[in-house]
Design a protein around this nucleic acid. Structure first.
Length: 424
RNA sequence: GGAGAGAUGGCUGAGCGGCUGAAAGCAACGGUUUGCUAAACCGUCAAAGCGCCUUUAAGCGCUUUCGAGGGUUCGAAUCCCUCUCUCUCCGCCA
């Protein structure tokens, strides 16, 4: 949630940020109008309430002192209460109006986020690793996986529906190896491992910014009371919802392996083959909760963490800074890591590392005290995938494929695979 | 699924119509004492919103908040209704 104070004090700054996102800027004025009206209403209302409190106190005093005046006090107070009740509902609807505009407003971008209308304007910062080349024509992972009998798309569909897949044998083993490798590396780097619920309530998805317009991203159960989490970012950010943290306990660094579920309603016809876009996928996520002063540093820490995993696996990738229009709703700055997929001759997103500033903290009321005597302040939250399991698995299949149809197992994963050097 | 108990500040926990934004204790913070540590003593210590003032900070004023929503009343943490959640016991089950 964008700060109300910022919108009031520096509306042009917020408009500018919205424009850089190619977002409608009139929402700022919509908010300011509702906010102004609400503040006027609440001021008048408070005056009435003050008077009612005075009358009540006078009533209590008059009970013994001058019983004769009780009736007129009672009448005056009753009259006032009726007016307060009316004005209260008017004020509440103005507040709801301002709030609903605010809830739908994306985060304010950091200054160094590049301008741009779409992904074409994203800035490639660097490439790491040579694009894998072969003496033969490389295959896409779905062909490699089906030939090896480790990916079974048809049976996934028969068990659930399209965009569900079955992993078998060495494929399932490779999947588990990746989970263990990611988690152990993240824990060694100082992240605390969490096993959260996979079903999350409305309040949690609202706080992380996944509800609103993004509600159709998620599968819901129990008549919409709960959602299948679309990313462990939801659970990890909400771990401290409503809390005031001690500053010497910050930063909080978390990592979790979870299944994730997405409807992918807007992606009909896109990436229909293979593991790239599934309704159910698995991911190891990292999240940091920290003081705003620490956000930039920890953003880098998270990117480094994701990069170190890709490097250890020997996967070529590039680091991209997303432009305004491509930066997600809750983020104020996002780096994407894109892995090279030789079967498709392209870089594909494999990790998205976002600095959300205090945007999520405001919604989730995650605060901390910089000093014991200070007022609580909103924390900053950051998140990144480190890494998604399915997309990493497919990247390994494509980058480590051999002419004979086998796939070499990257060295760091062999200890998790009984020392196997290849999947044949 | 059946029966009961409960939801109050960072934590424990009292309050059961006006004197309660809330006793007491713990924790925290400031200070006194002390050779150091500990102990003891004194003091401070909920959050949010709006307004005033100010460059900001601080400060001041008002309002709201005792799980959520509604009701009764001149007045609700306190009485009534609904909902949500938590805990205990029984049953069932991994």
């Amino acid at each position: 949630m964008v700060s109300r104070a910022l919108l009031r004090d520096r509306p042009d700054f917020v408009r500018q940020s919205l424009a850089r996102r190619r977002h409608d800027t009139s929402v700022v004025d919509e908010f300011l109008r509702a906010d102004r009206e609400w503040r006027a209403a609440i001021s008048a209302l408070d005056e009435d309430k003050k008077e009612r409190n005075r009358l009540s106190a006078a009533f209590a005093a008059a009970r013994s002192a001058e019983p004769a005046s009780l009736e007129s006090l009672r009448d005056a107070s009753t009259l006032l209460s009726v007016r307060i009740k009316q004005n209260e509902s008017a004020a509440a609807s103005l507040e709801r109006k301002a709030d609903s505009v605010l809830t739908e407003m994306p985060n304010v971008l950091l200054d160094d986020v590049p301008d741009g209308a779409d992904f074409e304007s994203n800035v490639e910062l660097r490439r790491v690793g040579e694009q894998t080349s072969f003496e033969f024509a490389p295959l896409p992972h779905w062909e490699i996986g089906e030939r090896l009998g480790i990916l079974d798309f048809a049976r996934g569909v028969s068990l659930a529906r399209s965009r569900f897949t079955v992993l078998r044998g060495a494929g399932a083993r490779l999947n588990r190896a990746l989970i263990n490798f990611f988690l152990e590396t993240n824990v060694a780097a100082g992240f605390t491992e969490i096993v959260p619920p996979i079903l999350v309530n409305r309040e949690s998805v609202r706080a992380s910014g996944h509800l609103g317009k993004f509600a159709d991203l998620m599968f819901s159960v129990d008549d919409g009371a709960l959602f299948l989490s679309p990313t462990a970012e939801v659970q990890l950010v909400n771990l401290h919802r409503g809390e005031i943290l001690e500053s010497d306990h910050l930063p909080k660094l978390y990592t979790a392996y979870t299944p994730c579920f997405r409807q992918e309603a807007g992606a009909a016809g896109k990436d229909t083959r293979g593991l790239v876009r599934q309704h159910q996928f698995e991911k190891v996520e990292v999240v940091a909760v920290c003081s705003p002063d620490d956000a930039a540093r920890l953003h880098q820490t998270i990117v480094d963490q994701a990069e170190s995993l890709l490097q250890a696996l020997g996967l070529p990738y590039r680091l991209v800074l997303l432009c305004g229009a491509d930066t997600g709703f809750a983020a104020r700055k996002t780096y994407d890591l894109e892995v090279w997929l030789p079967g498709q001759q392209t870089y594909r997103e494999i990790s998205s590392c976002s600095d959300c500033g205090d945007f999520q903290s405001r919604r989730a009321m995650i605060r901390y005290r910089a000093d014991a005597a200070d007022k609580p302040r909103y924390a900053a939250t950051l998140n990144g995938s480190a890494l998604p399991v399915g997309r990493t698995l497919l990247a390994i299949l494509e980058n480590y494929q051999r002419e004979d149809g086998a796939v070499t197992v990257p060295g760091v994963l062999r200890p998790y695979m009984d020392g196997a050097t290849a999947i044949t």
